[in-house]
Simulated assay, not measured.
Amino acid sequence: MARSALTREEVLATAAALVRQHGPQTLTMRKLAAGLGTAVTSIYWHVGNRECLLDALVERTVQEMGTLRPTGRAPAARIVSVARGLRRELRARPHLIAMVHERGLTERMFLPAQQALVHEVHAAGLRGARAAAAVRSVQFHTVGFLLVERNRERSPVQSPAEGDLWSESTAGGDPALARALARPADPDRLFATSVRALVDGLLAGSSQERRSPGQGPGVTAE
Rank of each mutant, 00 (worst) to 15 (best):
R103K: 03
R93W: 11
L111M: 11
L86D: 01
F110G: 07
R30F: 10
A39L: 03
E59R: 08
E107S: 12
R20I: 05
A74E: 13
E51F: 03
D55P: 06
A124D: 14
P75I: 08
E64T: 15
Q114T: 07
H46N: 02
H119Y: 10
L96P: 00
A77V: 13
A92M: 02
H46M: 04
F110A: 02
V47K: 02
A17E: 04
P70V: 12
L36K: 03
R78G: 08
P75W: 08
M29W: 04
R84L: 12
L86A: 08
Q115C: 08
G72W: 10
F110V: 10
K31H: 12
P75D: 05
R78Y: 10
V40K: 00
C52V: 14
L27Q: 10
R20E: 07
H22L: 15
A116V: 02
D55M: 08
Q25D: 09
V121F: 00
H95N: 11
L18P: 07
A77S: 15
V62G: 01
L86T: 01
T61I: 07
A17Q: 08
L117H: 06
S42V: 09
E51D: 13
G66I: 00
Q63C: 10
Q114I: 11
V40N: 09
L53D: 09
A83L: 11
G37V: 13
L53K: 09
I43C: 01
A15L: 10
V80E: 05
V11I: 00
L36H: 02
H122Y: 15
L36I: 05
P75M: 05
F110H: 13
H119C: 15
A116I: 07
R88G: 02
A116R: 06
L105G: 01
T106G: 09
A15P: 04
R103H: 00
R69N: 06
A116E: 02
V80P: 04
R50L: 14
